[in-house]
Design a binder for these strands. Structure first.
Lengths: 254, 254
DNA sequence: GAGTGGTCTAGACCACTGC
DNA sequence: CAGTGGTCTAGACCACTCT
């Protein structure tokens, strides 16, 4: 209300609300602190709950709030810088932030993937399921498609389906010396299965990273990794956490 | 309604709706085709308009629909692969998809940026405004922060503020031989000014690409580029358009 | 001016979490 | 069990675009 409210451009209530709450977050709240519940906030601002929720949704999209059903709305920590340019396969040493494979079966990949792999339309490939997290927080869920032709050594040596087989496929894949990788990032919404793994609701916004692994001009594997858009900032290049966020400035815990 | 509706896991209506409409888009609609209006769709599916809108919002988030106030809802073309790893400064030759600088003044950068640049808290830098687009479609809006110290040759040679000055700063910047770049991608919502340039509503989802330009170990410039999340798929690496989308499969124009 | 999507309301009920 | 966020409704009005 401090604005001179030039009525020429009446900005929506939820937009104004978002800014007001956003500033309040910077000045009056510490990370992890819990906000008043939606009904009270709506009453306090004199708007319908739906309108208040529209503002909170925006703030959640920007990674500044975290909402959990049955619990409440809390102030989110700054987004985690997650390096996407390397890919440690459950690497030794740094078990802190790494992929963990936990399943593998054979499936018919979606058309776009099988086209990239150059496999026939209905042809099955290995589908390796991996999870990435830090400090118990899930960050990303991945589906790695590997045509049987890419790992010829792995035939009927069996390996019971599941984590064991996943490790075998990964081992074979690492044996190839890759020429390089191709990456694309786009916005998506979490499928039901990914949402469960990521501890989010189905449909929540995610950053989908599609990677083609190249070997002698051919695509030997395709990975579709789904990162939580609310908590992750994807980094590329050799410097790890770049530590530049859009609405910057550390939260001042009063 | 063809589902066997296992009532054990009652998925939300809007979620089911999203899937139904999504399938319809694949089978019954061509790119660019206009859908029935929201009120009619809601009636046809027997839901409130708000619920129908929730489904459409999801589909828009996934880049499958495009909605314009006063016009209607149309089927979106597949996302454009936009290369982010190179950065042609209004390069000669390919004027098709390139940055176009059109303004430059001096501003105090946001704290996160000035920290990355190593400038003092209240210190001004050049702020170069650029726009990227293809075929008339705006793709991204960028703010490039360049400390005066990074372009020492450009002092009082004037150049009237505006596009001319922008070109001067770029020219100076290209004269430096950069060691490399650091990139980060995260989800954001369009600020009012970006939204206007991108022909979107304020708050619409965008992919924010933050780039640090390095020269002899120091950060000589920082760019914050805002890409339309609905129409863009950011690509990294040397192969241009990777042509793998998440919900793949070309639309079959009946 | 007719028709579209965007905003907003006031209320209801559901699903989940934790005590 | 009480309290939270998530879903859904039925309506109203506004801002915009096109003709």
């Amino acid at each position: 209300m401090g604005t001179t409210h030039l009525e020429t451009v009446p900005e929506p209530k939820y937009w104004h609300l978002k800014n007001v709450i956003g500033e309040a977050l910077d000045s009056d709240f510490a990370v992890g602190e819990i906000l008043p519940n939606e009904r009270e906030l709506a009453a306090r601002f004199g708007v319908a709950r739906a309108t208040l929720r529209q503002a909170l949704e925006q703030l959640e999209l920007e990674g500044r709030l975290q909402r959990r059903r049955g619990v409440g709305t809390t102030v989110a920590p700054p987004r985690l810088g997650v390096d996407v340019s390397t890919n440690q396969h459950t690497g030794p040493g740094a078990a802190q932030d790494a992929w963990q494979a936990f399943d593998c079966d054979k499936v018919v990949p979606p058309p776009a993937v099988s086209r990239a792999l150059g496999t026939a339309a209905g042809e099955e490939t290995y589908a390796l399921r991996r999870l990435r997290g830090t400090h118990g927080q899930p960050l990303a869920a991945e589906l790695l498609y590997v045509p049987a032709a890419s790992v010829p050594e792995l035939t009927a040596i069996d390996a019971p389906s599941g984590a064991a087989r996943a490790r075998c496929v990964l081992r074979e894949l690492q044996r190839l010396d890759l020429d390089g990788q191709d990456r694309a990032v786009e916005l998506g919404s979490a499928r039901a299965d990914d949402a469960r793994e990521l501890d989010r609701l189905p449909g929540s916004p995610v950053l989908v990273v599609t990677t083609r692994y190249l070997c002698q001009g051919r695509t030997v594997a395709v990975s579709v990794a789904t990162y939580r858009a609310d908590t992750c900032k994807l980094t590329f290049g050799d410097s790890g956490d770049v530590r530049i966020s859009h609405h910057g400035e550390e939260r001042r815990a009063s």
